[in-house]
């Protein structure tokens, strides 16, 4: 979508930039929940000490 950068339609490009930023935020939130909050025992046990060290609710 950035290939159209040479066209004068800068407005649609800035919308695209915001969408990309929001997508990045969604990825960050998903990782935090996977590492810090996922309830499965295996995920909890692997990340246990890190969850404590970041003061996430644990156990």
């Amino acid at each position: 979508m950035q290939q159209t950068i040479s066209t004068p339609q800068t407005k649609s490009l800035s919308v695209s930039a915001a969408v990309q930023v929001v997508s990045a935020i969604a990825i960050g939130v998903a990782i935090i929940f996977a590492v810090g909050f996922a309830p499965m025992d295996v995920a909890h046990n692997a990340a246990h000490d890190a969850r404590h060290a970041f003061a996430f609710p644990c156990h």
């Binding site: 930023v21 990045a24 990825i27 590492v35 970041f54």
Partner: peptide
């Protein structure tokens, strides 16, 4: 156990960095 803890710390740090840089980009935009 130490390796998994280090990996999880890095994973959480990457997630925080994504949020931080994204929100900074949103601020600049």
């Amino acid at each position: 156990r130490i390796a998994y803890t280090l990996g999880a710390d890095i994973g959480i740090a990457i997630a925080y960095a994504i949020l931080m840089i994204s929100l900074m980009a949103l601020h600049d935009l």
